[in-house]
């Protein structure tokens, strides 16, 4: 599965401070830690405190590019910030993210095509967060329809069902998991699926356990990608084990170690 490291985010105080002080070393260290722990790509988010996200994201990208060539996941709700990042990014980009709103799709789908980027589509719209599986599927269908009309390759589209905290929306968890499976059947070829994992445990007292249990279950429902904390070793062990049980890798006694050598 595609593992996107979530730790370069201005929400974290040390990252916010590094962005403010333009201290590359903090960013580069965090980038390498995540890659060493198994991240296939790195999320890059300037955070709410950034006054100039358009230039901050460029600075972050350039700092990270000095130490790794891994794909970068440009994370902003503002399309112009993402575009600013795409302009300087060498290598593969993941756009994080569009919603099902036409005004967002209109800008971001052509950008994804232009830069040959992967695109994350959130099943959310100006009407708000979906309340059940059917609403999620409806929004996913809207994103898919827009992408296929625009000739954007569906295999490069990652649909996110929007994972809500378990202490906020416990009744929706089953539907979110089922949506992951059903996103696959609404189009051929199928889109990929992704979750922002840590949200499931937001505001709870057992974050690690909730994260790894939800991820394991989501993998069983066919999840393709997740934005998560790769430095959480228990989480990564669960992920590797879940993939093993799903026959994605060949078992051996040192399978955890074997996976980490990939």
């Amino acid at each position: 599965m595609l593992i996107i490291g979530e730790l370069i985010n201005g929400m974290f105080q040390d990252i916010a401070r590094a962005i403010k002080d333009k201290d590359k070393s903090v960013i580069q260290k965090r980038a390498l830690e995540q890659v060493d722990a198994g991240a296939d790509a790195l999320d890059v988010n300037c955070g709410p405190a950034s006054a100039k996200p358009g230039s901050d994201i460029r600075w972050l990208i350039e700092a990270i590019r000095e130490v790794t060539d891994k794909p970068l996941c440009l994370d902003s709700s503002k399309p112009q910030v993402i575009e600013s990042g795409l302009e300087v990014l060498r290598g593969k980009a993941i756009i994080n993210s569009t919603t099902a709103d036409p005004e967002k799709l209109d800008i971001l789908v052509p950008l994804a095509k232009k830069y040959n980027a992967l695109l994350i589509g959130l099943t959310i719209s100006t009407k708000g967060i979906p309340q059940n599986k059917d609403q999620r599927l409806e929004l996913a269908a809207e994103i898919l329809a827009f992408c296929s009309q625009a000739d954007f390759p569906v295999e490069d589209l990652y649909i996110d069902p929007i994972v809500l905290p378990v202490n906020v929306a416990q009744a929706q968890m089953q539907g979110i998991l089922e949506a992951i499976r059903e996103f696959k059947v609404i189009s051929t070829p199928s889109p990929k699926t992704i979750v922002g994992l840590s949200n499931v445990s937001q505001g709870t007292k057992s974050r690690g356990l909730l994260n790894r249990t939800f991820l394991t279950m989501a993998l069983a429902y066919g999840l393709d990608a997740a934005i998560l904390d790769p430095l959480d070793k228990d989480l990564m062990d669960s992920l590797i084990t879940a993939e093993l049980i799903l026959n994605k890798n060949i078992y051996c006694d040192s399978y955890l170690d074997a996976y980490r050598r990939k």
Binding site: I250, Y251, C252, D253, S254, D257, R261
Partner: peptide, 11 residues
Amino acid sequence: DINIAKQLNIL
């Protein structure tokens, strides 16, 4: 045995 083949390569 594929599992042992893999394990031996790792060892």
